[in-house]
Write a protein that binds this DNA or RNA. Structure first.
Length: 227
DNA sequence: ATTTGGATACTCT
DNA sequence: GAGTATCCAAATA
């Protein structure tokens, strides 16, 4: 069987670099999810970098916990977390082991296994919304915490893999603030996406959730909007 | 087209 | 107990 050049697996050295180098380099790559039902593949179109314990936006901020332990391990592995009571999100660990940095896979275009992805996400209105958003991407690929720690560089039979795909030239890459990240972590423009791609998720500023019904103050600030 | 509020359960303080 | 690297339906315009 002949391997096309765009279907060669990326080796671990790809991830063994600073996260800000890896994140934009992941755009255009092919993420493979192999399920018992068959494969689903996405072309990555949007990612975010999280830079370890020094990054206020990162789960690794304030050090290692049971949840984020995988981020402190070797690069090329999946860090899957559960959020908002319903959703999973998929990251790939980057950098030298112990730096606890990773890339959140925020969106992609399903290029293989569309029918299977639709079954995982029956509410998607059209194909370019199947993986438009990090939880949608995880759902379309049937990713949950059973894949936390899975090695994406473990060969052609592994449940998760990453292939060369078609790297995106810098001129087609845009960057801006990370979605949903507040406080000091909001200042870094560490979200990267492919300019104009339909599967890129809309930017949403950080919105603190107010619990209960007593919302004391009306003095909420208006979110600054850039032109 | 854009904004709002609800659902949901896990993680760490 | 409070906050969350979200999504969806419903309401507004």
């Amino acid at each position: 069987m002949t391997e096309r050049p765009d279907r060669l697996p990326l080796d671990r050295a790809f991830f063994h670099r600073p996260v800000l180098d890896v994140a934009p380099d992941l755009l255009g790559r092919t993420l493979v999810r192999r399920t018992p039902e068959g494969p689903v593949e996405v072309r990555l179109t949007e990612v975010e970098a999280y830079a370890g314990p020094a990054d206020p936006g990162s789960h690794a901020y304030r050090g290692r916990t049971p949840r984020n332990a995988v981020m402190f391990g070797p690069p090329g592995h999946a860090y899957v977390y559960f959020t908002y009571g319903m959703w999973h999100c998929l990251n790939l660990v980057c950098g030298p082991e112990g730096t606890a940095s990773g890339v959140l896979l925020r969106a992609g275009e399903v290029i293989r296994g569309v029918e299977l992805a639709r079954r995982h996400r029956p509410t998607a209105r059209n194909d370019h919304e199947l993986a438009k958003g990090p939880a949608r991407l995880a759902t379309a690929l049937d990713v949950d915490r059973s894949l936390n720690g899975a090695d994406a560089c473990d060969g052609p039979e592994a449940p998760l893999g990453i292939l060369t795909g078609t790297p995106v030239p810098p001129s087609r890459i845009r960057q801006g603030p990370r979605t949903g990240v507040g406080g000091a972590g909001a200042t870094q423009p560490w979200r990267f996406w492919i300019d104009g791609d339909r599967s890129v998720s809309p930017y949403r500023a950080h919105t603190p959730r107010r619990r209960g019904r007593a919302a004391g103050r009306t003095e909420l600030d208006s979110a600054g909007r850039d032109a």
